[in-house]
Design a protein around this nucleic acid. Structure first.
Length: 305
DNA sequence: CAACAGGTTTGTA
DNA sequence: TACAAACCTGTT
């Protein structure tokens, strides 16, 4: 066990848990950093994550510890995942093995969050061909307009109390609330040409979500997802990874495209689909994790330059 | 001012 | 099936 529960707090060892890596590796946009504290607000929940001595604390402010243990995937052994990816890496002849090694070391605190489906789908449609700053502003506006202010259920620690005294957090709107929105509203909050896609897909969600996905292969699920407007292969794979917990997919965006060229030297140009299936073939059920380590390392490194 | 940003859709070979 | 071009819009 790499965590213990103390009332509304989860105490986590730092070895495979690092808030910066978790929140800034591109998997979620439902967080806010205030000082050294990360606040995360998935659905209608809220937690503060901060360093306390040698450990990280997840202080659950709305929603119980059980919810956040699942959300942060705390029952999973990420050290084992890292070891498995290292093993795969060692068997690759034509790979830049050092790149993987460095990525795993750099991102060892990453965890793949278990995110709610509607929030994930809507957020990633916004993210397509968009920059984080711009679409997080749209998402925050959406929360403010049609979510509810999250009230603190559990007594906050003194430190957190002070930090949130001037802050408001809003839940992600329910599907019911989203269904009432029209194209013009999404345009207004800066969705641009994605506005009709959002409108169409939200309209299709009740029917879509009623399906039983448990028996579906990842390939089948991908086909279903890309049939929704505004969802192409990349967004679909993100939704599968972050919303469905399908780790056997490898989302390829511009960053992973760059990584692929660094990683797989002299293979010639390949398109996103070819890259995705090649990496999937290599990493199998560790693809989702491997993607996050590589993506985070590449992007963070780029930002330092 | 043109290019770009964590792609998708639509139209054309 | 594969590849281009257009696409909202704030930033650099």
């Amino acid at each position: 066990m790499n965590y213990i529960v103390d009332e509304n707090k989860i105490i986590v060892k730092t070895e495979n848990f690092d808030p910066k890596s978790i929140f800034e590796c591109g998997q979620t946009f439902s967080f806010r950093k205030i000082g050294d504290v990360y606040f995360t607000f998935p659905e209608d929940k809220l937690a503060a994550v901060y360093l306390d001595g040698e450990n990280y604390v997840v202080e659950c402010l709305a929603g119980d510890t059980k919810f956040f243990i699942n959300y942060f995937d705390l029952e999973r052994d990420y050290q084992k995942i890292i070891l498995e990816i290292e093993k795969i890496n060692a068997s690759q002849e034509d790979f830049d093995r050092k790149l993987i090694e460095k990525s795993l070391k750099f991102g060892r605190g990453i965890r793949i969050l278990k995110q709610e489906l509607v929030e994930t789908i809507v957020s990633f449609i916004f993210s397509a061909n968009n920059n984080i700053k711009r679409f997080t502003a749209s998402l925050n506006q959406l929360r403010q307009d049609f979510g509810n202010e999250i009230s603190i259920e559990n007594e906050a620690s003194q430190r957190i109390k002070e930090l949130i005294s001037s802050q408001k957090f809003f839940s992600f709107p329910s599907l019911k609330a989203l269904l009432k929105l029209d194209e013009a509203y999404f345009s207004k909050i800066g969705a641009g040409y994605r506005a009709p896609y959002l409108f169409e897909t939200i309209k299709a969600l009740p029917n879509f979500l009623a399906e039983d996905f448990s028996f579906m292969s990842t390939d089948q699920l991908l086909k279903e997802l890309v049939s929704l407007k505004g969802i192409g292969r990349k967004v679909a794979q993100c939704v599968m990874l972050f919303g469905f917990g399908r780790v056997d997919c490898f989302p390829v965006d511009t960053w992973i495209k760059q990584v692929y060229n660094d990683l797989n030297r002299g293979e010639g140009e390949k398109n996103e689909q070819q890259i995705s299936s090649h990496l999937l073939k290599i990493f199998g059920n560790y693809s989702g994790y491997a993607q996050q380590y590589l993506f985070y390392y590449k992007r963070e490194l780029k930002q330092l330059v």
